[in-house]
Design a protein around this nucleic acid. Sequence first.
DNA 1: ATTGCACACGTTATAGCATAACGCAATTGA
DNA 2: TCAATTGCGTTATGCTATAACGTGTGCAAT
Lengths: 132, 132
Amino acid sequence: MTTPQLTKNQSLVFDVLEKAEGPLSAYTILDKLRDHGFRAPLQVYRALEKLLEYGVVHRLESINSFVACAHPGDDCHSHGIVAFAICESCGQVMEFHDHEVDHRLMEWVRGQKFKPEKTTIEIRGLCEACAA
Amino acid sequence: MTTPQLTKNQSLVFDVLEKAEGPLSAYTILDKLRDHGFRAPLQVYRALEKLLEYGVVHRLESINSFVACAHPGDDCHSHGIVAFAICESCGQVMEFHDHEVDHRLMEWVRGQKFKPEKTTIEIRGLCEACAA
DNA sequence: ATTGCACACGTTATAGCATAACGCAATTGA
DNA sequence: TCAATTGCGTTATGCTATAACGTGTGCAAT
């Protein structure tokens, strides 16, 4: 799937996420966009819904936040399962992919005849700098 | 770590989770315990906090819910990373462990000098029965 | 061209999830 | 006894997410 032209709101939300150091909550995004006319959470959530669908933004379930995909210009959906390491001190997020992990998980679900739709892998802890 | 004697509230919350068919939200638990004197969310959250610490209950981050550990009487913390398959239709949860997945993830974090604290693996989709 | 549809958008209201801050009671151990 | 810890109850509040309604715009089919 190729990413269609973003609408105004979608672009605004995406730009905020791209310029951010780390993941942002929907309400933080809202606050950052008040000067651009944003007034209600739904404006953010609707934009995020599309950006997630296009694969250019990821949702971090364990911290209720959103982050721009680390592969600019690329369809992230094609990379298989996305995994994240989230530093609980500085908030930085590292995104990575491991086909062997994907393979093992998909083997397991196949054995259970489970039909996967969306998989979340999130490792919370301390990054090198913060652990020191 | 061995599980200490549960307090009254902890037991009530744990019993509700154990008897449930699937995961429950904190507020659902609260409702089920109103007859037992529960009045406020904190009573549930405080009990859950301890039960999570003891490893007898798991939190499902992607659906803001809680489920009793599938290994009764056993310390689940010793099983390595816990993974879940969650049916989005019937709500049933399958818990499993895969040491190879653990290994790959831990290899990756080691390479990044990232210090993991808590890892979440959740696969949402359709169970065999619901996919049919 | 007009009708019908899909889609993005704006607004208000509400639902659902989680914790802060206070105080009380029971337990334990120095 | 005194201090520290732990569990508990209550009130209030904050954060996260969606329902329901209506508006406007662009575009395709007739």
